[in-house]
């Protein structure tokens, strides 16, 4: 009887160790390939011209910050977001500024993408 209790305990503990290890591998791989990309020769990257008042500059900077957040934490959503037309991107960003939850924003990005 006690033999089975130990077996059950052992089996219940395995996933607790195994799952984070797999996740960590993926995260490590991602961070290493992301670091490597900086070594690629610089190419002419498109940089949007920022002009106008400081308000619009702050707006753009916030939007860039939002996009950076998406890229770093919600890769899939970021890819879809970047494929949206400018107008839909602004709509998503405005929702974000108004405090919309990230899960709702991510769903909206998919909806807009599929339209």
């Amino acid at each position: 009887m006690s033999k089975y209790i130990f077996l059950k305990l052992f089996l219940s503990v395995i996933p607790a160790f195994a799952v984070p290890v797999v996740a960590a591998d993926d995260t490590d791989y991602l961070s290493e390939i992301t670091a490597e990309v900086d070594k690629v020769d610089a190419v002419t990257e498109y940089v949007a011209e920022q002009s106008g008042s400081s308000d619009s500059q702050a707006y753009l900077e916030n939007k860039n910050g939002f996009e950076k957040l998406l890229e770093e934490r919600y890769h899939g959503s970021y890819v879809f977001y970047k494929k949206l037309p400018e107008r839909a991107q602004l709509e998503i960003f405005d929702d974000y500024r108004q405090g919309q939850e990230m899960s709702a924003l991510r769903e909206k990005i998919i909806e807009r993408y599929m339209q």
Binding site: D26, L30, Y74, H75, G76, S77, V79, F80, R106, E107, I110, Y113, M114
Partner: peptide
Amino acid sequence: NYPFTLFTQDENAGERDAILR
């Protein structure tokens, strides 16, 4: 561009389904 993470990470299941469609 469809980064591999779209197909490997469970948190991207919604995006993955959209891409499969």
